[in-house]
Simulated assay, not measured.
Amino acid sequence: MADGNSIETPGSVGNGDFIIGPDYKIDPDLTDRGRPKGKSFEFSLRLADSKIFRGDDSTLDATKPVRVQRKIFVYVPAAYKDGTKAPVLVTLDGPSRLDLVKHALDNLTGSTDPDRSLPAFIVVAVENGGNDGKGSERGLEYDTMSDRFARFINDEVLSAVLTNAEIKTAYPRIAFTENPLGKAVMGCSSGGAAALTMGWFRPDLFRRLITYSGTFVDQQDDDASEEAKYPLGAWEYHSSMKLIESTDKKPLRIFTHVSENDNRANDPEETYHNWVMANERTAKALHAKGYDYRYVFSRASKHCDANVFEQTLADTLVWMWRGYIPE
């Protein structure tokens, strides 16, 4: 049985730096190929009922609306057996690319090719708390350098999935693995930064991290208490602080990506907001520290580009789950 101390042997296949584009086409494994389908569910959580993100933090900008409720989308693949402790993929800004992830699961959980298969993980797509940038609930959740969002997802969202009446009716013995090697997170933009931050601060909870067009820039709220330790927010992962390189290596598997036309800063004073530079430096820091990482630079593409997801997401998921030992 796998546990948090299990030794995986994923090897180095697929690790390193890659360039794709400028032409793109959808991966057939991200389309409906007629395979057995799983079950989809949707429910909502009131922010006011949360003990972690109530939507009333003092750092919030009153002009940036906060959601009253956040939607939670769940997909249980056909290959999942009720009572099994399932691995889980949490995706941010839900539903986001849930349609593509569903197709990947449908097509690849039954694959007989060990180099092109996925475990039967359950997907939990979580809507953000509202708006964007500094002073927003989404920014508070995603851009803050702390373990707060990891705790929210683990303690409140995943627990809510397991106790949801509709889901329990369909799967009376549904369960998630407690093994952090079986818990992955995927996000784009600030959601990508949140994915890395969740694993960085709580590798005991999440260890497989996927970030597209990651916001590894200075977007943490200026009033955040975390500014005292991380004054440049997620920029500190690769800044002169060298957070990644100066910290003991963590048991994380990390995918990062940036688009050629992701937000670039031409003004020297805006250096701390240069997405391309930030992602290139993050990848170099991961390489220097010896992480299992995969970095993709996509030509002729934009921020969180759908073409990039449609071409790469199946490969990304297969690489991310390499070496996973199911319970």
Rank of each mutant, 00 (worst) to 15 (best):
N15L: 05
S136E: 01
L205A: 10
R54S: 15
I325E: 11
T9D: 11
H238S: 13
G83Q: 08
V185T: 05
S189F: 03
F255K: 01
Y212D: 10
A150W: 00
P119E: 01
A160N: 14
S213A: 06
I19N: 14
S189Y: 00
D147P: 09
Y272C: 03
R35Q: 13
V123S: 03
K284Q: 13
K168E: 11
N263H: 02
T211K: 07
L313W: 07
A48L: 12
V217Q: 06
D93F: 01
D248E: 15
N5I: 06
F309S: 13
F149A: 05
G133Y: 06
S189W: 02
S50K: 03
D57F: 04
I153P: 07
D106E: 11
D49L: 11
T256V: 13
A306M: 11
L181E: 03
I122N: 00
K289P: 09
L47F: 08
E42Y: 11
N266C: 00
T163Q: 06
G133S: 09
G214H: 03
F43A: 05
V68I: 10
R33I: 01
R151E: 08
Y324F: 13
D155V: 03
W319L: 10
F73Q: 13
V74M: 13
D315G: 14
I325T: 10
D305H: 03
T271H: 04
M145R: 02
A306S: 14
R322V: 07
K85D: 12
K25T: 13
P65Y: 05
S239I: 00
E310A: 14
R97N: 14
K289N: 11
D27S: 12
P36Y: 03
S298N: 03
R70W: 11
T211M: 14
D49A: 15
M277I: 08
R67W: 13
D82C: 04
L181Y: 05
F206H: 05
A300H: 13
R299T: 10
V124C: 13
N279A: 02
K249P: 07
V74N: 12
A300K: 14
G133M: 08
K102E: 14
K102A: 10
G14A: 12
R264Y: 01
M198F: 06
V13C: 11
K64P: 12
I174L: 10
E270M: 10
F216T: 10
G139D: 01
V76M: 04
D222E: 09
L252C: 00
M198N: 07
A160K: 14
L45V: 12
K284S: 12
A300F: 11
I167S: 09
S159A: 15
L158W: 04
D315Y: 11
A62Y: 07
P180E: 02
L196R: 09
I325L: 14
P180D: 01
E227P: 01
A150N: 04
F73H: 15
R299I: 05
A306C: 06
V123G: 03
A125F: 05
A306Q: 13
C188W: 12
